[in-house]
Design a protein around this nucleic acid. Structure first.
Lengths: 220, 220, 220, 220
DNA sequence: TATGAATGAGGATTCATTCAT
DNA sequence: CATGAATGAATCCTCATTCAT
């Protein structure tokens, strides 16, 4: 049995024929879609794509199972649209941040802060973790993420970091050559929290600060 | 077979006489177990735990479906034992490496090299990726990894890094406070390779080298 | 379906367009439940619990395999609910019969008639046979039967029989001490019919009558 | 899951290559056969035919699984031969008893005593219970029992009882017409013990005595 | 003969998806 | 649009039976 075991639902079907007409059309279509996505995030995050059940998503979203199919073609579409919709607002934010005209250290601090506040402290952390855990079996998703996030941010960062190197803001070009090193701790924090939170919680803010110290020297 | 009225199974079961007498008992038991684990790694790595089919594992291992159950209690056991068996030899190696009496930079280079050659270049990379992707739904697995790897290595590294700080080998205590920062690029490389290899392969050796440059300053 | 490389299930699944549109939602839920129980009784009676296949139950009930699980948690639940639901109406009947204010011989004749008409001549015979044959491996079932039937009827009968003894309606207290003796022939008939009907059918009505003769003396 | 649940066996195969050559050929072939039958009775009695596992039979009999197939064609043969071999000695005994030249009450007491001591108090009770519980799905077995036991004993008993009626030893011919009534309490005791022993143990000796009282009047 | 590892058909159960209402 | 009962393909796991040793 899969380890994160789920309580067996009773098979008894109560078919109250007089059931009080529960709020059909109570919500806007958009609101419905939203609540399905919300529920989906909870379920996918808790169980992973394969083990999540649309039944549970529907229950959590307070809609019928069939309703999900009015908004999403199938389970996979739901998953992909979920990830995409959560990512979109982030992408703009990251992109604009990356082009700020500030010292590189400030920029990196900004990025770190954004990560801590806007991602790690929110459900977006779950979305990123889903990309990490499910991405390998969802080539399309990985591609989407690469195209929309990585491919946009990486060159900008690389350029900015190269500039910093040439200006002497950075001691060497390691970061410019591998901007991945800049976000590695963020990724590590997400993975760590999913695996070891119970045993050894991580102070992410401090982790990010330490990382910046490592790169730029201790904060003044 | 139960007697009443259903066709005798034995009549159905008799193997086609022309079947190519495929090697029963061809290998020793340990070899069988090994080939099952091998096949399992392939399947789990390719599809993830939930989507992998024991049928495919059996086919790949050239054994019958039932044979798997002679060696492993169930799918989950197979998965867990797979991870554990692949990790065990690594644990000793890491531990001994961590206690080497060498300058801290040398130690870190050693670790990086070991990662590149012994993990990233081998199937062990897949095992680590499985821990990352499946760990969140396998608390036992996460705990095993924490207990056997993290909990052993982290304190040793922390002590060693603190010593380095006090000796002036390191400019500041960021790494000592968060040894996770030391391995973050390795983790990042594993995640990256699972998601973006197709779009942008990563030169891990260079990545690790750059990371060390970042920490210790450019190599002389 | 999991995305990677396996053929999309949906492609496989699309029902043949020429399939004879067989009555979905044709019956009301209670009718469905009933037809599943009906089919289950047939199958369990014919093969026993272990050898009965839910596949056959579904086919016989004209529902899909999965439908069974909408109404019953699992095979065992189906079996137990089957027995319980068939027994319930009987329990009330027996109880009310046992408390009738009539001469003890009349009472016993009434019980015998009820057995012959309401049990032996109906599918309830199969239910009782199932209790006999499967009860030893279904402690819960045996307990249910003991609690709901035996424990209710036995004391009442014992009291009534003792009264009959004290009134001189019975020649001795054998029956009062072991009311089981009163129903032993009924049980025997059920067992006999399951084993030897083919070789030597039993005239149950006569058997019961003979039994009463044995107890009370030949009928006048 | 079947209710009489079985502890999951560990899937770990310990293949001690140096295992101490355990008593091959330690026993006579007949002894082996006997110990297999013994073990089979235990397992079939405990779980029923379908749920009993030859694995367990083999373990209990201290032989290898394959060895069973040297002595019995298949599971069903084992079961049938088990029942037959346990029944054979009984048949002769019953037959000779039935032809004894004693008063009919004495004869019935003898039969009752034999039942209590030779069947109910021994493993033969389990055999009879197996006939009752498994017979319906084993037409051959039911036929065997009918042919070897019922068809031999019933006519003899009927004749003897008719004689008793004509001699005035019996008040009426109920028993002669339905000799089943004579054994009904024995059968009831076997069924009862399998189902309700836990809740209400039955004093079989007293039950049989009471039954005889019922038939012949209270003992002098 | 005896062994027990290997086999693979069989069957219970799950759950994404459909569609009559 | 919304519902949720119904569907049935998919897959895990069991265990009677075989056969190389």
């Amino acid at each position: 049995m899969h380890p994160t075991s789920r309580p067996k639902r009773s098979a008894v079907r109560r078919r109250a024929e007089t059931a009080p007409q529960r709020s059909r059309r109570a919500q806007e279509p958009n609101q419905r879609r939203k609540s399905i996505l919300d529920a989906a995030l909870d379920e996918f995050a808790a169980r992973g794509f394969a083990a999540a059940r649309l039944d549970d998503v529907a229950r959590r979203a307070q809609v019928a199972k069939g309703t999900i199919y009015l908004y999403f073609r199938d389970k996979e579409s739901l998953f992909q649209e979920l990830v995409r919709s959560m990512l979109s607002p982030l992408i703009a934010a990251i992109e604009s941040a990356a082009t700020r005209e500030v010292p590189v250290r400030t920029l990196c601090e900004l990025i770190a802060d954004t990560f801590v506040c806007e991602i790690y402290g929110t459900r977006r952390k779950d979305v990123l973790r889903l990309i990490i855990t499910e991405g390998p079996r969802f080539p399309e998703l990985a591609e989407f993420y690469y195209r929309e996030v990585i491919a946009r941010v990486l060159p900008v960062m690389r350029k900015r970091l190269n500039l910093a190197v040439s200006r002497g803001e950075l001691r060497h070009d390691a970061l410019a050559r591998f901007p991945q090193l800049l976000v590695a701790p963020a990724l590590t924090a997400i993975v760590w929290s999913g695996l070891f939170e119970r045993f050894a919680p991580l102070d992410v803010r401090e982790l990010m600060r330490a990382h910046l110290d490592l790169i730029f020297g201790a904060a003044s």
